[in-house]
Design a protein around this nucleic acid. Structure first.
Lengths: 164, 164
DNA sequence: CGCGCCTGGTTGAACCCTCAAGCTTCGAGT
DNA sequence: ACTCGAAGCTTGAGGGTTCAACCAGGCGCG
């Protein structure tokens, strides 16, 4: 049983900052979104991912991957958003196990209305703290961390076609 | 009403990575801590902050600040941890409005037992993804973001004495 | 001193997430 | 065709978080 390696000064600073950001940033964005439209940051992201998808629909599993959520969590949330008329569930024609979530026109209108305020909040709470070099460094470092947390995370997918 | 400035490529990468880290990292650490001792990352941090405090106690408000939590959230959690015998509430002698949370010996033993595994998890999920320059950059950038989210955040306090 | 406001903290209800269990369908193997 | 295991998804219960309301003690000020 070896002695654990405790954190050095930089490691501790980086870790404590990450912990604080993790608590404060979603809380602030949740507050803004809740005031603007009674939805959470996670709800918003579900709608946003669908709005950017081809045909404005995605299988539940793919939507779960793109929001870093469990299928269970997503299922509950989709039910809620469905009750508000912002999306629908449909069976997938090719595979009867698959359910797809479709953004409705009302859902599209909702997110289109919310987006400017949300982007403004992301800027003012997060990006405006940084100069362009910081943003580039953070993108690079952030993706390293993501790849350690989930090797196959969707944001790491390259969009080139696989070799023939 | 001006057109919102949408995110450029680096901004989008940085933001999406931050979002994913925000979801995946606490989830992974919660899993490890829950397996090791049926507590959450937040519970752990409450105990950790107390264990590092002088006298192993802090006023509720100060503890809330050091865990980036609302007083309400903290109050519920302290009740839970108190029921497990890991800490106690006591009135503050100087100001009857103040409650202090004290780490018990049992609480100290708990966190001492958990710490090596937790630190190891933080390393393997987070720090080990990065080289020392990355860690230093992340510490610097992270503190910039924290200061924008909360100007008076405790991790930004300098420990030098105020001018006479 | 007495009024009002602020600070520190608690509580209960509503809401959200997690976890485990379970259902249906697909696909591989025989 | 049949079986079995895995994939995709849903559900309900239990526990955690948030929000608004509330209480009590301190502080300033006339």
């Amino acid at each position: 049983m070896t002695e654990p390696r405790w954190l050095n000064a930089d490691e501790r600073r980086a870790w404590l900052a990450q912990l604080s950001i993790n608590t404060l940033l979603p809380a602030a964005l949740d507050t803004q979104l809740h005031a603007a439209g009674k939805l959470s940051l996670f709800d918003y992201n579900v709608l946003a991912m669908l709005s950017e998808a081809e045909g404005r629909y995605l299988p539940m599993s793919e939507l779960a991957a793109r929001t870093s959520a469990s299928l269970s969590r997503l299922s509950h949330v989709v039910t809620k958003l469905q009750n508000r008329g912002w999306l629908e569930r449909r069976p997938h024609p090719g595979d009867a196990r698959v359910t797809t979530a479709h953004l409705t026109d009302a859902g599209m209108a909702t997110i289109a209305g919310l987006a400017p305020g949300h982007v403004e909040a992301v800027r003012s709470l997060f990006l405006d703290a940084l100069d362009p070099d910081d943003v580039a460094a953070l993108a690079r470092i952030g993706e390293k961390i993501v790849s350690r947390l989930d090797t196959d995370h969707w944001i790491l997918r390259d969009n080139t076609l696989p070799p023939a």
